[in-house]
């Protein structure tokens, strides 16, 4: 259980929520997870950049809000009719202040846009990726086809069985009793850490979207087109990271999670070799299919 925290840490959510001042500290302490009310800091350079932008814009908005709401509240208290306030009906216009409160926001906005633009440039730069994986979305599962050094590895990833039982209407199973309820799959995607991984996303039916919050990576999978996406998980942050499909894709949109198993490059290599061996074996089997082959293949789908 590397990355994302699981349930059970909900007690005290109320109190924590209002400790906004401690926010970044808390987020730092639980790196690569969300603390339950803020974005995760995540485990890629990108996710940290996004987090920084998010916090920057958030605090700017808070500052503006404190200022504006402060003035409003002051007015509400100070200029009450019931306290005998007399209206100053000459105060109806002032070109000077109006120019000020047009120009200052423009400056603030420019100050926000510049760092944001830098991050966009970086996000869109998929060059020099070291591993490409073709990700195909279906109603309601993901297919991962590895390219480059891992060419030939190819499998489907669907909601884990426990979750699938528990999520049926009035199943009677308590979701809290299911480990990683709705966030677990049968075959996670495996990637190496410290490597620039590029996903080539497409779909076979409707639009889906691939999202792992801890990577700061989200992109739509559009039928007939290929969208690109990249991330590079910090070395040392190996573990399991979870996400979900985020584009409404029909009945089981809520039930096509994404699980990424980040391993060290060496472990990843081992895994690839195992997979390739398994593929070979399967091919050999396919030549003389055992009677249960069909059942097996549907089960793994």
């Amino acid at each position: 259980m590397g990355g994302r925290r699981t349930g059970g840490r909900r007690t005290g959510a109320w109190t924590r929520a209002f400790c906004l001042a401690a926010l970044s500290v808390v987020a730092g302490a639980h790196a690569n997870t969300s603390n339950g009310y803020n974005l995760p800091l995540g485990v890629t350079g990108l996710s940290r950049d996004i987090y920084a932008l998010h916090m920057e814009v958030f605090w700017i908005c808070v500052a503006i809000a404190v200022g504006v709401f402060g003035v409003m509240i002051y007015a509400l208290v100070k200029f009450r009719h019931s306290q005998g306030a007399v209206p100053d009906t000459t105060l109806v216009h002032s070109t000077k202040v109006e120019i000020i409160w047009t120009v200052i926001p423009v400056i603030i906005l420019v100050a926000m846009a510049i760092p944001a633009a830098k991050v966009i440039l970086m996000m869109e730069d998929t060059r020099n990726s070291e591993l490409s994986i073709r990700v195909t979305a279906y109603q309601w599962k993901w297919q991962y086809q590895y390219m480059d050094a891992a060419e030939g590895v190819n499998f489907f990833s669907t909601l884990a069985r426990d979750s699938n039982f528990a999520r049926q209407l009035r199943s009677g199973i308590d979701p809290k009793s299911v480990e990683n309820y709705l966030l677990d799959v049968d075959h996670p995607m495996v990637i190496p850490s410290g490597t620039k991984v590029r996903l080539l996303l497409t779909s076979e039916d409707v639009i889906h979207a691939w999202w792992v919050p801890d990577f700061g990576a989200k992109r739509a999978a559009v039928p007939g087109f290929v969208n690109e996406l990249w991330f590079k998980v910090d070395p040392g942050k190996e573990g399991i990271y979870r996400g979900q499909c985020t584009s409404l894709c029909g009945r089981d949109h809520g039930f096509m999670p994404i699980v990424v198993d980040v391993r060290t490059p060496d472990d990843f290599k081992k895994w690839v070799d195992e997979q390739k061996a398994a593929v070979k074996q399967a091919a050999a089997h396919a030549a003389a299919p055992p009677p249960t082959a069909q059942v097996l293949s549907t089960a793994t789908n």
Binding site: E124, R134, L200, T202, G224, F225, V226, E228
Partner: peptide, 17 residues
């Protein structure tokens, strides 16, 4: 043009069409 691999959508052509 995108389907024919123009610009950012180069992989649309390479992988699909």
């Amino acid at each position: 043009p995108w389907l024919a691999g123009d610009g950012v959508k180069i992989f649309s052509k390479l992988l699909l069409w």
